[in-house]
Design a protein around this nucleic acid. Structure first.
Length: 471
RNA sequence: GUCCCGUUCAUCUAGAGGCCUAGGAUAUCGCCCUUUCACGGCGAGUACAGGGGUUCGACUCCCCUACGGGACGCCA
């Protein structure tokens, strides 16, 4: 059997992190088994579905690299098919018209709640006879079996039993004739030959109804896997108020897609003690059976650790590709200065995100006009003027601008002036970087370049003479 | 309220009756490395929700309670 999975978001907002994980799991499962992954847009809620949301979802999936084999299919394009099925259900006696008003049904629910019962439609229109009330457009309800039980043999939950007596006759077509979710999902999964449904566990309660509809249609239900939801850092349910829940927001915040994928995969799924997974490894090792049964919380600091890991391990060219957007935001043109790849290698272990990295690249490309106050207090002593002057002269006289010579120059200066290494290193570093975290001094100087170094040393000397009291 | 699901360190998790005085990872803290900041190395603390069974033996199986979540829509 060819494995066919699907991701079926409703376009009422961006692709959030929970949806992305569900999509990832479905995608991985299909890939692992050489099957197909289908994208379906569940846009039957005409009121809330938007084209922007569709775009946001597609953009998020593309960024993560979750390419689909078929689709995107839009449910709004399939209304004829749903009508056909609804009619079939009506014809075979599996569905009926219901003329109950909203108010009537609401009252019913309230009474049941007050009576400590589970609120549900009591089926009063099931056996309605006679002429239908005039001017009332009916809804269509599915005739759910009254007795027996439905067993959902879930791939992550195990067997879950529902009594049919707990279920009511759900609406499958609205009074305007449009189909509702539980009907469309069943028809689509059937028509698209989806045989493995991996989705959020908020759908577990819908599953027995869907199985009943499938049975009424004479179709074989797919296998189901209900994955637990993702909570925010604070253990509360994810919402717009919880910060970065949109996948695109993570891109904006400077995360690499491979870090997000790795992070998402490890949220609710595991393979022994392994933490780092390439996409290839995931497609090989992933299995629905290994998905956790309990909800998990976002762990942003672990995502950051993964992101830093991938920034350190990836080829600098790849990082540069993702970094350019963030450099642009800071007005940095990397062609105007040291080779970006070298700067990235020099700075990347000091950054958790691309935003950090871009920020830490700044001093290589731009001069600055202020110094970190704390460092300045420590390093910019009056005697530093002479030291910087010495270094500057040495630099100016340097034949070749490379790390070895710079290292030697500093060592010589230390020796000539008979001072500690720090006496030279600290003011020099501060003069050139402004106080930003930076790698080995000789590497820093080398990358910043001769002209900028000389210029900044002059600037530092002037600063000290102006701002630091001579004692 | 009713039904369904869940509960191992702060967080992500390993654990399929003895391998567990519960392992890994992140975070935190300490030490080492270091003229900055990091990286890296080493180390520390912190967890089986509670109570009953079953068993020679329970984190692992069963029941109850508590807590958390989900569903109960002419939303998906």
């Amino acid at each position: 059997m060819t494995i066919r999975t699907r991701f079926a978001p409703s376009p009422t907002g961006y692709l959030h992190i929970g949806g992305a994980r569900t999509a990832l799991f479905s995608w991985l499962y299909a890939r692992k088994h050489g099957g197909q992954f289908i994208l379906r847009i569940e846009d039957t809620d005409l009121e809330r579905s938007t084209a922007e949301s569709v775009n946001a979802i597609l953009e998020g999936m593309t960024w993560l690299g979750l390419e689909y084999d078929e689709g995107p299919f839009y449910q709004t394009h399939r209304f004829d098919r749903y009508k056909e099925i609804i009619q079939q259900l009506l014809d075979t006696g599996h569905a009926y018209h219901c003329y109950c008003s909203k108010e009537e049904v609401d009252a019913m629910r309230e009474a049941q709640m007050a009576n400590k019962e589970k609120p549900r439609y009591d089926g009063r229109c099931r056996h309605r006879t006679g002429t239908p009330p005039a001017g009332v457009p009916p809804v269509v309800r599915f005739k759910n079996p009254l007795e027996g039980q439905v067993i959902v043999d879930d791939m992550v939950r195990g067997k879950v039993v529902f009594q049919n007596s707990e279920l009511d006759d759900l609406i499958i077509a609205r009074s305007d004739g449009t189909p509702t979710y539980n009907l469309t999902v069943v028809v689509d999964d059937m028509d698209m030959q989806i045989n493995h449904v991996i989705r959020g566990d908020d759908h577990l309660n819908n599953t027995p109804r869907q199985i009943n509809i499938l049975k009424a249609l004479g179709a074989e239900p797919p296998r189901y896997a209900h994955v637990p939801m993702i909570l925010g850092d604070d253990g509360k349910r994810l919402s717009k108020r919880h910060g970065a829940v949109s996948v695109i927001q993570y891109r904006e915040d400077g995360y690499l897609p491979e870090a997000v994928i790795n992070f998402l995969a490890r949220l609710g799924w595991s393979h022994g003690d392994q933490e780092i997974f390439t996409v290839d490894e995931l497609t090989q090792l992933f299995d629905v059976e290994d998905i956790n049964q309990s909800a998990s919380s976002m762990n942003t600091s672990k995502l950051q650790w993964l992101n830093q890991h991938y920034m350190k391990e990836s080829p600098p060219e790849r990082i540069a590709h993702h970094l350019s957007y963030f450099l642009g935001k800071l007005g940095i043109d990397p062609t105007d200065g040291p080779a970006l790849a070298e700067v990235i290698v020099a700075q990347r272990e000091r950054a958790k995100t691309l935003v950090d990295l871009a920020g830490s690249c700044q001093f290589y490309y731009h001069d600055f006009d202020s110094y970190d106050a704390k460092s300045a207090k420590k390093a910019f002593k009056p005697e530093a003027v002479n030291i910087l002057e010495q270094v500057k002269q040495g630099m100016a006289a340097l034949e070749a601008w490379n790390r070895e010579n710079l290292h030697q120059l500093i060592a010589d200066t230390v020796e000539t002036l008979e001072v500690g290494f720090g006496k030279v290193g600290m003011p020099l570093r501060l003069a050139v970087t402004g106080g930003a975290p930076s790698p080995d001094l000789d590497l820093t100087l080398y990358l910043v370049g001769k002209a900028a170094c000389l210029r900044r040393i002059d600037q530092a000397i002037a600063y000290i003479q102006q701002n630091v009291e001579n004692d």
